[in-house]
Design a protein around this nucleic acid. Structure first.
Length: 968
RNA sequence: GCUGAAGUGGUGGAAUUGGUAGACACGUUGGACUUAAAAUCCAAUGUCCAUUAGGACGUACGGGUUCAAGUCCCGUCUUCAGUACCA
């Protein structure tokens, strides 16, 4: 009987589906364990071999936990709103829901054939109205909440209204917009409904505000900071500009401190926590108020170095700062205006790329030093960012490199306020070695003391206080797209109103075109049935809008991260129509025990999800305030791209035909030698050698064999322009390509599809091989050639159980050697799984099978438990053999074999005998031999005498059970 | 610049507490079987020297600690990822 993997795998996949083997129950006597993958966006290209890597790892863990007796929740779903489906809709007119459904079908087929133990009964799709109903519901909860700094949690907006009605807003300690005008209780009661709504909007956890956003004209939408890479859009690489727009924002900044503190309570990778810490960007310092000479205006700054306040020799405002126009003197106006215009023209990208150029302008105004009352010139400069702190800094050139450079450039005096520091060449920035001088009451103090004292003195004169600043900005939540969650929002007199949760979901309307409207409104502006009837509580035609009972609906949709910020909770009770998930289900499953996904989500999905979880926790909706206890990042599988070297002659002949040269004819850096130039001339005729250029061009990796040789016919037929291609072949008559490791991507023609691997080698081979490639978290290149190794292993394993006559497993008692092999394997595999070191356990299985084959082991006592060990990794073959051994139940819940150390006890050890630390020979000695005896035996040995060649050893180190080292 | 991760044969990688560096695979070479090929099996395979016995060198580089260092300490270099004037 041969190992017919295709048949076996199909059989068991069917069995698992029919018997709902992996369906998790919300009640169980067993302890719970929740294993989650980051759910995929179902793209049109389908899965490539890189995608399942993390899924295989989590599946192994989930299956292992089932063997350990846990009730395991291991769900899967789709993050199915997104840009590619919409772009496709724009191009083809095909509704994104249709393409999305098709893509999901492909994904499901591909996932099923790899044999994952997902509980598909809990599948979620973010674009399903039954799912986004609850995304909209959460949005409403956020709208109806404010953040109370006194209780340090989100509270219902009604508690805030009560405070306003009884005492005004003077004593409210809330996270809110800047510059909210103070009002009394009487004033509040006198406000119109619109005025009240305007005020409340400044406190709500999601709010409408005019914000400067990253507008991408090519995509017709706003992008979040983490959707922009190097100044261009992450998807598509289109340019991004700054633009002011009214947008929904999420007051994530309210949770900055808790998001930071929470990191200490969760077991996530250090690098990931570090990126979140940097993103939150906490800095402790002081806010300082500078009065302006001859003006009522004051300039607020934030500084982390209040101890250097006597070193201030100028102030710098961001060019966009609101006071600039007011402060600029008539004499300086022309210069300042010109500077503002120049910086506005520079894109964000230019400003970032060009850090070294110092530029700025003097406003003509002077601020007043809070203590010395000396005048301080006020400058503007684009090294100060409008978006951070107050958009203004007190410049201390002696203690800050940027201020130093700026002062030098514009010949502004530099005051040295550090004792014993040399600032003739550069600023002195070492906080630890700081001794303040030339600073009145701060003289002689170190950084810590001086900081405290400076804040104390500032508070005394009412011109400053200690302050903590966070870099984390509120997140823009509106997108000008079609394929996203609609907001449950309509507008009355320009003020946003929430639709009652009872009427959710508000479904996406049909539109004819998925592009922005001609007036520049988002795609939903094309919808003709997109108005809210407040009497009937339903969406009605726009024609009926009367602004009395029928009002326009919001035209923006929610961003990609909306649906993914809470899906892990929905899996706990995904079909619930009454609640987002039942309390019982959430109390049982609580949180994700193991979350596996890519590190690219560090400051996007993983931060927003933690924010929403904390908010929902504050509202009593979820039972824990961190959603994932442990998180592991899987590395990426990279593609090995193939390049054909195209010979290109600058004068332009031969262009259309294309002449290619084998890679082995070129030097390491692609250089040409005389012989090769001769060959090229033979092919192209007389050309000037200096005009010959070699251009590597991507070739599809499927045309290339494992020896890097190109299938010329396949390449010629690939594209019309290559039909007539000519090839200068290499030394062995073959045509060789150059190879390079790159990200796996369709555009690089290096994608390897798992479907082919599964049909050629089977899902078990694919699973094992993906794990065998290397440590889970590492980036590593894919090389299909190596898969024969694990495939051979499975064939060998099969032969251990089955031969030409069928099953050959016997009831014979296990030999000592076989027991040792088994228990060694149990120990190692268990340790490996718990350390997520899946690559080494594959090796361990190989060693076990090699050993048992040598031992000619047929004992059921050995071979049956071995299947349980293997089943998380290669579940199909394990189920099949388990079944053939006479088990009627699935292997998936069989108990994990118990390790018994007694089988590993050795009676002797093959000691390495070293001389001066260098191993020379080994010597078999009994384990119970004493140290002295070992030393005596080793010294008496003839090989030792040979090594010593008459010398007397100075010292002999004996570590029983480990090593003997002779020094001398 | 800062932060994080890493650097071991031709390749992927192993060595969990300092104790036989290169497990396990791929590839390569040789052999068996075969008319041949595939499949399978066996053997060799870090580099260099040596007919053998054996020896020298060897975990990015330079130092150090130790009987013993891929592993610990100090310094340097390189690669990858994230971040980017954050006051």
């Amino acid at each position: 009987m041969i190992y017919d993997f295709n048949k076996i795998e199909e059989k068991w996949q069917k069995y698992w589906a029919t018997n709902q083997t992996f369906k998790a129950e919300n009640q169980s006597e067993k302890p719970k364990y929740y294993v989650l993958d980051m759910f995929p966006y179902p793209s049109g290209a389908g899965l490539h071999v890189g995608h399942p890597l993390g899924y295989i790892a989590s599946d192994i863990y989930a299956r292992y936990k089932r063997h350990q007796g846990f009730n395991v929740l291991h769900p899967q779903g789709y993050d199915s709103f997104g840009l590619p489906a919409e772009q496709y809709a724009i191009q083809t007119g095909q509704h994104p829901a249709i393409t999305t459904a098709e893509n999901i079908k492909t994904y499901r087929r591909q996932l099923d054939q790899i044999g994952f133990s997902f509980d598909w009964s809990r599948e979620v799709r973010t674009s399903d109205p039954q799912y986004y109903k609850w995304t909209q519901w959460i949005f409403i909860q956020l709208f109806n909440s404010w953040y109370n700094n006194d209780t340090n949690k989100a509270e219902d907006i009604s508690t805030l209204e009560n405070i306003f009605a009884t005492e005004g807003n003077a004593n409210v300690n809330a996270v809110c917009d800047d510059n909210i005008a103070p009002f009394t209780a009487e004033a509040w009661q006198g406000f119109s409904s619109e005025d009240k709504q305007k005020v409340l909007l400044q406190y709500r956890l999601t709010y409408l505000a005019e914000t400067e956003v990253n507008w991408c004209p090519a995509l017709g939408t706003v992008l979040a900071n983490d959707e922009i890479v190097n100044g261009v859009s992450e998807r598509g690489g289109h340019p991004v500009i700054r633009k002011k727009m009214t947008q929904w924002s999420m007051r994530i900044s309210a949770y900055a401190e808790r998001l930071l503190q929470g990191l200490d309570t969760i077991d996530w990778t250090d690098s990931l926590k570090e990126s979140q810490r940097n993103w939150i960007g906490k800095s402790v310092g002081a806010s300082v108020t500078f009065n302006v000479k001859d003006s009522d205006a004051v300039i607020d700054v934030f500084t982390t170095r209040p101890d250097t306040i006597f070193g201030v020799s100028f102030m710098t405002l961001a060019p966009e700062h609101e006071l600039v126009a007011q402060l600029t003197t008539p004499e300086q106006k022309a210069e300042v205006d010109a500077y503002i215009l120049a910086t506005a023209k520079r894109s964000e990208r230019d400003r970032m790329a060009d850090v070294k150029t110092i530029s700025g302008a003097f406003t003509g105004a002077y601020a007043e030093h809070p203590f010395t009352k000396e005048p301080i010139p006020v400058w503007i400069g684009d090294y100060v960012l409008a978006g951070y702190g107050t958009g203004a800094v007190m410049s201390v050139p002696c203690g800050d490199e940027r201020d130093y450079a700026f002062a030098n450039h514009f010949n502004i005096p530099i005051i040295n306020i550090f004792d014993g520091a040399d600032i003739s060449e550069a600023a002195f920035t070492d906080k630890e070695k700081t001794v303040i001088g030339n600073s009145d009451f701060l003289n002689g103090m170190n950084y810590k003391k001086a900081t405290k004292r400076a804040i104390f003195e500032l508070e005394k004169i009412g011109q400053g206080e200690g302050k903590t600043n966070y870099r984390l900005r509120d997140a823009v939540f509106s997108r000008q797209r079609y394929w996203g969650e609609p907001f449950p929002v309509y507008y009355v007199k320009g003020m946003p109103q929430m639709i009652d949760a009872a009427h959710l979901p508000i479904k996406l309307p049909e539109v004819e075109k998925y592009l922005p409207t001609e007036t520049g409104e988002p795609p939903l502006g094309n919808a003709t049935v997109w108005a809210w009837d407040t009497n009937k509580n339903e969406v009605v035609s726009n024609d009926l809008i009367d602004n009395e009972t029928i009002h326009p609906l919001e035209l923006n949709t929610m961003p990609g991260w909306a649906g993914s910020s809470w899906y892990f909770n929905r899996y706990m009770d995904s079909t619930n129509t009454e609640e987002f998930a039942s309390k019982e289900a959430m109390d049982y499953w609580k949180d994700v025990d193991l979350y596996i996904g890519g590190s690219e989500h560090a400051t996007g999905h993983l931060l927003y999800s933690r924010f929403w979880q904390k908010f929902l926790f504050d509202k009593g909706v979820v039972p824990v305030d961190e959603f994932a206890k442990k998180l592991i990042n899987q590395g990426m599988i990279l593609g090995t791209s193939a390049f054909v070297n195209r010979v290109f002659v600058e004068t332009g002949i031969q262009k259309q035909r294309g002449v290619f040269i084998s890679n082995d004819l070129l030097g390491n850096k692609g250089e040409l030698n005389d012989d090769v130039i001769g060959l090229i001339k033979k092919e192209l005729g007389e050309v000037d050698e200096n005009d010959i250029k070699i251009m590597p061009i991507h070739a599809d990796v499927s045309f290339v064999n494992s020896s890097n040789q190109l299938d010329l016919e396949a390449f010629k037929n690939w594209r019309v322009e290559y039909n007539e291609a000519r090839f200068i072949k290499g030394k062995d008559g073959c045509f060789e390509v150059a190879r390079e490791v790159e990200k796996m991507s369709k555009s690089k023609y290096n994608v390897v599809n798992p479907d082919n691997i599964v049909s050629d080698y089977g899902a078990d081979s694919l699973r094992l091989y993906e794990m065998f490639l290397g440590p889970l978290e590492q980036y590593k290149p894919w090389n299909t050639a190596g898969i024969t190794g694990v495939h051979n292993f499975l064939k060998k394993l099969w032969k251990l159980y089955v031969d030409d006559n069928g099953l050959k497993v016997s009831d014979q008692a296990a030999t000592k050697d076989a027991l040792k092999t088994l228990h060694k394997t149990i120990k190692k595999v268990q340790e490996d799984i718990e350390n997520f070191s899946f690559n080494t356990s594959v090796s361990t299985f190989m060693i076990a099978v090699n050993e048992l084959t040598t031992q000619k082991c047929t004992s059921k006592d050995i071979l049956e438990p071995l299947l349980v060990l293997l089943s998380p990794y290669a579940p199909h073959i394990a189920e099949e053999l388990w079944n053939q051994l006479g088990n009627s139940e699935s292997i998936s819940t069989a108990a994990f074999p118990e390790f018994d150390a007694s089988h590993l006890v050795e009676s002797s050890k093959n000691y390495p005998i070293s001389f001066n630390g260098k191993m020379r020979f080994t010597l078999e000695l009994p384990m119970d031999m004493s140290k002295d005896e070992i030393e005596k035996t080793v010294l008496a040995h003839e090989k030792t005498q040979e090594q010593l060649a008459g010398r007397t050893p100075k010292k002999v180190i004996v570590v029983p059970g480990k090593i003997v080292n002779i020094v001398g």
